[in-house]
Design a protein around this nucleic acid. Sequence first.
DNA 1: CTGAAAGCGCTAACAA
DNA 2: TTGTTAGCGCTTTCAG
Lengths: 340, 340
Amino acid sequence: MATVNLKKLATELQLSVSTVSKALMNSHEISAETKERVLLLAKQLNYIPNPYASSLRRKTSKTIAVVIPEVADSFFSIAINGIEAVAQDKGYHVLIYLTHESFAKETAILKDFQSGRVDGVLMSLTSETVDMTPIHDLHARGIPVIFFDRVCDEIETAKITTDDFESGYKATRHLIECGCRKIAFLSFSKNLSISNKRMEGYKQALTDHNIVINEADLVFCTNDDAYNHALLKNIMAPEKHPDGIIASVEKLTTTAYLVCRELKLAIPQDVKVVSFSNLQSAPILNPALTTITQPAFDMGKTAAALLFRALEKPGFNLKKESHIIPSTLIVRDSTASSES
Amino acid sequence: MATVNLKKLATELQLSVSTVSKALMNSHEISAETKERVLLLAKQLNYIPNPYASSLRRKTSKTIAVVIPEVADSFFSIAINGIEAVAQDKGYHVLIYLTHESFAKETAILKDFQSGRVDGVLMSLTSETVDMTPIHDLHARGIPVIFFDRVCDEIETAKITTDDFESGYKATRHLIECGCRKIAFLSFSKNLSISNKRMEGYKQALTDHNIVINEADLVFCTNDDAYNHALLKNIMAPEKHPDGIIASVEKLTTTAYLVCRELKLAIPQDVKVVSFSNLQSAPILNPALTTITQPAFDMGKTAAALLFRALEKPGFNLKKESHIIPSTLIVRDSTASSES
DNA sequence: CTGAAAGCGCTAACAA
DNA sequence: TTGTTAGCGCTTTCAG
C-alpha cells in the first residue's frame, strides 16, 4: 500500500503542498471549496499525517510521558486510567515508563526526555530519588513536569497529592478510637514524601491522644517481600506485638494479613488493620479491610488536565497549581471493635 | 539552554554533520580518534539526538504500542510490566492506549498507527470487536500486530495466550471433584475468544462427567457492575441456585462474593467459587480464593520479545509463532470440600 | 486565496 | 576516512 502524503494529495489535486497543508489545518486563508476538495480526497485516500514530520517541524509532539514506579498497584493502574482518559480527549499520546523504584532508571528516562520526545511529564518519584537534577534539567529545557502522589518539595511545580497527613491522622485516630494503644506504622522508604507525611499524621494523632511514640513501631519495609515478611513476623511476635497496624502502602497489606494468620493473631480481635489501598477486593478480604482509599482516578485526571492546560497556554503558571484531593476512610471489619 | 544538535557538534569540531553522525553511530568508516573527539564533545555538551528527526528519516520509531481494554485489572497491569521490561531492555518506547472495551476507540487508535507512529503493536481485543479491518489495514502497511490474551482467530499472526480451554476444563473438573453438580459459568462477552474457550473447556468437563449442560448456567455479564450484581443475585436466588461458580474474568469475583454474602450463601459450604484471576490478595480473601492464575508477566514478556524479534529481523515469520503459556490452578478455601 | 521556498534534525547515497 | 548532497513529510514565512 503506497503511503499517501501531502505531496501525493497535492499532485492529485493540482495544488501545492502548502495549500493542501493549510486546507487540512482549516486555515482561514484557504477558500471553502478548496478545503472541501482537499478534505474529500484526503478521506478517500485515507490520508494520515506523519506525526514525526509534524513534530520535527513544530517542535511539539502531542505526547506526554507518565513515569511511575510500577503499574501493578491499583493506585497507579487507576491513575493511568484517569490520565489516559484526559489525554485521549485532548488528542495526546501517552508514553509509559516504569522505574521499578530505581533512581538510575528514572534518571535515564528523564534524560531521554531532553530530546523533545515528550511535551510534558507526569511523574511519581522513585522511593530512592533524592537527587533532583534530572528534573531540574527538564525544567531548564522548558518541559513541564507535574508530580502526582509521590512528590518532592524541592521542585516548584504543580503537585497533585491526597491529604496524606490528614489521612495518616485519621487512620491512627480511628485505630485509637477502636481501642488500640500500640500501633505499628508500616512504611516503605524513608525518603518517600507520602510515607513521611502519613507518618507525621500518625505521630500527631498519637501525641494528641497522649500516646508515646515508640520508634520500634515505625517499620520500614522494602521492595523485597520475603524480607518484609520476616520483618513483620518479628514485629508481631507474641506478647509484645502491636494491637494495630497501619499499612501506608497497599502492597504491605497482603503481607500483614498473612503474617497475622501464620502467627494465629485474629484480625480484628488481636490486632486491627487499616491500609492505604485502592484494592477493589477490600470488602471481600478476610476480614474485610478498613482502608484509606485514595482518589486515584481523580488524581490522574487532575494532573493530566493541569499538564494540558500548561501545554496549551504558554504563560500558565504551574507553581501555584497544586491540588490536594482528600482520601476517604472506609471502615470495615478489620478494625471492628472487639467488644460491642 | 540552547539545544545542541549535530550541526552544533560539527561546527564546534570542524567536522561535517555526516561525519559526526556516523561517529556517533560508531560507523566503521570513521577513524578511532575522530570518534573519540566526537563522543567526548557530545558528552560534554550533553548532546541528545532528536528522536523525531531520526524517525522521520529512518522510517522507524523505536516505539511500540500496547492497546488493551483497561489497565485496572491485575492481568493487564502485570502484563505491562512484562512488556515494559523487555522494551526498556531493547531501547524501545511504549505507548499505552486504553480502549475501555469500545470498538470505536480501538478503531481510531489503530487507524492512527497507519501514520508510522509505532513500529509494532501488542494488543488485546475489545469485547466488542468483531470487525477486523482496522487490523488488516495495519498488516497491509507492514506493521506487525501481535495479540496477547484476547486474540482473534481470523488474523494470521503470533498470538500469546494461556491454555484457556484446558483451564476452563481444569476449573470445572476441580469443582466437580469437590462435589458440585450445578456450576454457573460467568462470562463477559459472547465474542471474547478467551471467555469462549474457557467456556468450551467448562462444557467439555461437564460432558465428560455426565453432567448435562444447562444454558441457564451460562451467565453473560457486562461492563456494568450494577447490572452484573442484579443478574447474579437473580441467578443465586434460593432453592435452585448453583453450587459452584466459575468467574472467567477477574472483575466478576468481587461481585460474586458480595452477592453470596448478601444472600447469606456460605462459601464454600453452599457454593464453591473459582476465579480466573491474578489478584495478589487472593489468599487473604474471605474465604481465600481458588484461582486459575494466568502467567501475565510471562505473556507480556513473550509477546514483546516476539515483536522485537520480528522488528529486528525483517523476514521473521510471525504466523508460526503463537505461544500458549499454561495457567495454574491454585486451590484455596473457596472450593474446600464441605465434608472432610 | 494560492504557491514557492526554506528548513526542522537527522541519515544515507555518493563523491572525493 | 571525510564531506557533499539530497531528502524523510510537514509547517511556515514570504511572494504572488
